[in-house]
Design a protein around this nucleic acid. Structure first.
Lengths: 348, 348
DNA sequence: CTGAAAGCGCTAACAT
DNA sequence: ATGTTAGCGCTTTCAG
């Protein structure tokens, strides 16, 4: 069974038709009569024919591959986005090339270069925390290769973006804490060069203002969202006098780590301090008390990003027209933020 | 800048050499004089030349791609394996095609078919929970495409395997619990068709025997390791009379979920029941008390698997010779299993 | 509806 | 050390 690979020439010869006919039939080209198509299909199947994508791509000058750059892989959010992208691209029979920058601008640049070398037909990306500009994507725009950013985006008329309304999320989380009676709310976040964090902070500020609370920049803790960052954020909170009675933390993992440290220091959650996380990670259901968080439809975000790229590639729409798409998000209230134990049941 | 793509012919023409020389120089072939090579390199760089992998692969009949089938993506363990594989394959300038079966035999079959269609040069895989045989890999072995399994493997002389000593891990975990004074130890595990679970159970049994404890099959809880499974396992434990005083749980996530339910039912950990998990997931450091677990070097496992495949492909070694490679693993003792609070400090 | 033929860009024998 | 040449397997005009 080691034998040679079957080609369309073999099939053509065996069926006494031309290779062109086989090629067309295999793509289900209506130009070929249904009868011939069927005959060729069945024969190809029987012979164990597999299309040679290299020959096809070489000839057609398309790779049928979408490149994807993400800043993180150990994240439920990113994984659901990826699942959404995968679903859509697979349906359109595009391949997916996933590169991850591990939150490094330098790596992101080399990821982009790599995808460019691999001649992807389109790019979907979420920016690393320390990315300073979009120059590394210009090789794509120069060759008219479509690029769509998601979640961590940068405004540009050259590329489209799929995001959630981070401002609204920040506002709602803060308002919720205030409604629970919090008067001094810490926000633990990351680089304000990234839209997601900057926007949420803006929402936080506006909520404070609307409810008549003062904004104090000492209550803004900026770090890298690592485990260590969670520990030190908690320690900073513990050191504040008086201690804050609310915290809005940029992701559920950091929130969980902080909660652990706070509890070790005999701080009661939510009574002493109410906590809201972000992302709706599984960990939020494991920690005690269960974590109030913001849920975003990662899967949907991925699907939308992929659909946009593929629509563009098949000439249905143009990325320049679309520019920005906003996906839904919603707060999930659990015990960690419920100071006023009332009728409202915790959502699990 | 939309212009045509540069080819080796363009470079050849511009530099007044033949296309063959350019081709060789670009692969750093020592046949070409260092001077010419350098000249060509620099010119290629300047012109923004990118190699056309389709033409190359079409000609060389190699894809330079390794396919990888995993049963899960939301797992730190799998992610570290993948990182290890990525490192090695990237160094050897192979591409990686990742497919995931989501613990479904059917999907695994279609993943395999897909990778075969894509003509990967080699395959690295970890079996899904319900995989019943290895027939879907026979197309690879027939074409002499090397396959290496890792972690969840099935014995076969056609394929190589990279694993940890699950028997030893099961034995040590159980022995540890016994040393802590446990007399009735539950084991929460999954399908015994998978080597990893069968072997650990064997270790569990032997440890019980060696320490003179009876083996009771009612203490073996088999489920699918989902969140729901963790909840029901805990409920089963709660219903046992007398309640077990030790539990060895197949992964840290399920252990964490079970702990939560147990604690909600006022069971003290480790005093009422000592717990050991598996995999050394981050979650083990978040739960309270911190979880004793078994650490396996996932990254190393990935590196070894990839090195084996690539060694085979470059003709350095043969997979038939190697067959099985065993990677180190070690228990990490934290509070969840320490009934006897003695000198031994908890490892964090 | 089908066929003939050219060529995508690269590699590797074979020749110098 | 470098050049010549013949494809790799497919798609796609152009011609019937």
């Amino acid at each position: 069974m080691k034998g040679k690979e079957i080609t369309i020439y073999d099939l053509a010869h065996q069926l006494q038709v031309s290779s062109a006919t086989v090629s067309r039939a295999l793509k289900d080209d209506p130009l070929i009569s249904l009868k011939t198509r069927k005959r060729i299909f069945e024969h190809a199947e029987k012979m164990g024919y597999r299309t040679n994508y290299f020959a096809r791509n070489l000839r057609s000058q398309k790779t049928h591959t979408i490149g994807c750059i993400v800043h993180e892989l150990q994240s439920n959010f990113i994984n659901s986005v990826l699942a959404g992208i995968e679903k859509v691209t697979a349906e359109a029979s595009y391949d997916l090339l996933i590169a991850h920058s591990a939150e490094s601008y330098k790596k992101e640049i080399s990821n982009a270069r790599n995808l460019f070398q691999k001649r992807v037909d389109g790019v979907i990306a979420s920016l690393s925390i320390d990315t300073v500009n979009l120059d590394h994507f210009s090789s794509f725009s120069e060759k008219h290769i479509p690029v769509v950013f998601f979640d961590r985006v940068e405004k540009s008329d050259k590329y489209a973006a799929v995001i959630i309304d981070n401002y609204k999320c920040g506002y709602e989380a803060t308002a919720h804490l205030i409604e629970q009676g919090c008067k001094k709310i810490v926000i633990v976040t990351s680089s304000l060069s990234r839209n997601v964090y900057a926007e949420r902070l803006r929402g936080y500020k506006d909520a404070l203002f609307d409810f008549g609370l003062p904004y104090d920049e000492n209550l803004v803790i900026i770090n890298d969202l690592s485990e260590q960052a969670g520990i030190s954020a908690a320690n900073q909170i513990l050191a504040m006098k008086p201690m804050p009675d609310g915290a809005f933390i940029a992701n559920d993992f950091v929130a969980a780590v902080s909660m652990r440290v706070l509890k070790e220091n005999h701080v009661a959650i939510p009574d002493d301090i109410a906590i809201v996380g972000f992302n709706n990670d599984v960990i939020g259901k494991i920690v005690e008390p269960a974590l109030t968080t913001i849920h975003y439809a990662g899967r949907e975000m991925g699907e939308v990003a992929a659909t946009t790229i593929i629509g563009h590639l098949s000439g249905e729409s143009t990325i320049q027209k679309i520019n920005t798409i906003i996906i839904n998000s919603a707060m999930i209230i659990r015990q960690s933020s419920l100071k006023r134990k009332r009728d409202r049941p915790a959502t699990i």
